[in-house]
Amino acid sequence: MPHIDYYFTTLSPFTYLAGTELETIAERHGADITYRPVDIMALFERTGGTPPAQRHPSRQEYRAQEILRLSKKRGMDMHLKPAHWPTNPAPSAYAIIAAQKAGGGDVGALTFSFLRACWAEERDIAEDEVVRDCLEKAGFDPGLADRGLLTGAEIYAANLEDAVASGAFGAPFYIVDSGQRFWGHDRLEDLDLHLAGKL
């Protein structure tokens, strides 16, 4: 059974715009996924990336155009500058880590719920009420928001180290146990072809 390590942040517009295609691809090929939320700013710093706000204006303008084009193309609601962005991604990351450990719900749906809450619904994914709501809607005990915070923090930090060691440098980033790496929402087709043995 193929395995995919999925590195992402709940603050990434491109991770949001990737939708739930990863889960569809994984199901098609019988692959399992480990969801690994990371501190994206720390990952940029460790791997030579530049945070969006520090990029040249021409790069920022192009990024904005690309995000809006892609959202229209995919029919997804998108606020280019959501009311609560940036915010602290740690509470949502810890909830995803705790949910994955606990089981019983849909981690993919939970992850996308946080992304949609940020980019489409303009909710603050650092707020306890939002975290609990996303957990419950994805089939998890909302009380997970209060449990395992220390473990969540430890795994969140470990995910960053694993990302750097594995060659990830942005989000979304998909690493297959074959050693093949795929960066970005626009490489999901290549991931699909790779798992099919065609690439």
Rank of each mutant, 00 (worst) to 15 (best):
P2N: 10
P2Y: 13
H3W: 04
H3K: 13
H3G: 07
D5T: 04
Y6H: 14
Y6V: 02
Y6Q: 05
Y7L: 08
Y7T: 08
Y7C: 06
Y7D: 03
Y7G: 12
T10D: 07
L11N: 07
L11K: 05
S12M: 10
S12A: 14
S12I: 08
S12W: 07
P13W: 14
F14I: 06
T15S: 15
T15E: 12
T15M: 12
Y16D: 10
Y16P: 09
Y16L: 12
A18E: 12
G19C: 13
G19Q: 08
T20E: 15
T20M: 14
E21C: 02
L22D: 10
L22W: 07
L22M: 09
L22G: 06
L22C: 10
E23L: 03
T24H: 14
T24F: 05
T24N: 12
I25Q: 02
I25R: 04
A26I: 06
A26Y: 05
E27Y: 01
R28D: 07
R28A: 14
R28K: 15
R28H: 08
H29E: 05
G30I: 06
A31V: 02
A31L: 04
A31M: 03
A31Y: 06
A31P: 00
D32E: 11
D32G: 06
I33V: 15
I33Q: 02
I33S: 03
T34G: 07
T34E: 14
T34K: 11
Y35L: 04
Y35F: 11
Y35E: 01
R36G: 00
P37W: 12
V38W: 04
I40L: 15
A42C: 00
L43E: 02
L43I: 04
L43V: 06
L43H: 01
R46D: 02
G48R: 03
G48C: 08
G49W: 06
G49L: 04
T50R: 10
T50I: 15
T50V: 15
T50G: 00
P51F: 02
P52V: 06
A53T: 10
A53H: 07
A53W: 09
Q54H: 06
Q54N: 09
R55W: 01
H56N: 11
P57L: 11
P57V: 10
S58G: 00
S58V: 14
S58E: 15
S58N: 03
S58H: 13
S58T: 09
R59E: 10
R59C: 00
R59W: 00
Q60Y: 03
Q60I: 11
Q60E: 10
Q60L: 08
Y62N: 04
Y62I: 01
Y62P: 02
